[in-house]
Design a protein around this nucleic acid. Sequence first.
DNA 1: AAGTTGTCCAACCGCATGATG
DNA 2: ACATCATGCGGTTGGACAACT
Length: 343
Amino acid sequence: MGRSPCSNESNVKKGPWTPEEDEKLMDYISKHGRGTWRTLPKHAGLNRNGKSCRLRWENYLRPDIKRGKLTEEEEQLIINLHSVLGNKWSKIATSLPGRTDNEIKNYWNTTIRKKLLHMGIDPDTHRPRTDLNHLMNLSQLLGMSMNPWTNPTGLQADVTQLAKLQVLQNMLQLMNNTSLISMSNQILNPALDTFLNGTNTFQARDPMFRGSEYPNPTTGNNIADLFSQTPSDYSQQNFFKSGIEKENETNHQEVPSDTQNINTSQQNQAENLLPPLVVASCPRTTTFDKMESNYNAAQKSTESPFSTNFEAWEKFLIEDDEASGSYWKEILDLTSTSASPVS
DNA sequence: AAGTTGTCCAACCGCATGATG
DNA sequence: ACATCATGCGGTTGGACAACT
């Protein structure tokens, strides 16, 4: 029944390959071809298992391996493909001639992943980060405390403080109109509640506060009365006006195509829609064209209108800000210089 | 100069899948 | 049908090296 075991691999060498071993492997394959990896080491005079030989050949000795650092184009292609394929490194590698799946995987984990995290983008989902620590960093950068009990000044917050809270909340809401909302609400609403109504939902939700003897530090001042509009109206109208749109209104400049996309999103933002972020310039391959096509089709059918494309997001946040000096830049600068990535 | 910490990447491990006897 | 093998894939590790203190 079945195949008989071929060799005893208990005493095979492991660890780094020596130049001599490399030479033996290359010499054998150049003369005889690969054959079966299991029998190759014996025939080649190598005290290695077939798996190790295969790995060494595929990742290092293969003549068509491309050496040197990945180019920006390759990096962008990896990001684009990863947004479509996920951690399918071998599939991604097929679109990058001369690059191995291992190399791409390593590059992703050591370089790209960090870049994305630093930009506030979740490398796994290609969406803005939703993790609690990152949101807390954002809030801290905006000079807010999420827990009014530990922040006496929070109770004396002024209109600016409210605006900050609302700006952040709306930014988060626009970033991801589904799962993020509930999380951001959990974080921001207590502060807003305290600020607006003299109550805070931390008390209600946190078992630590439930039935506790903590005195309510609120004074009963209700600053919401100061606004004729709801806070949401206030920020949604002014948040974007303060950025790209406002700049365009004042400059009356011809709007570049990317910015037009963003303006379209502003029109759509009543429904919390962001623009379909386009795949930007990168080397085209047949494989990639198919993937992009599938991806676009998937985008049309998916419930969430939010794109996963990193470059377009980056463009959205950075490049248009350079032209407009919008509010995005301030926030992004803060996050990129001070917020530490969460591993 | 020495020790510590961080980064990079080659190589290994375990698992899944398809092929084979 | 089943056991075993061969291969490929993705996650993880560990060592070499660099940067920092």
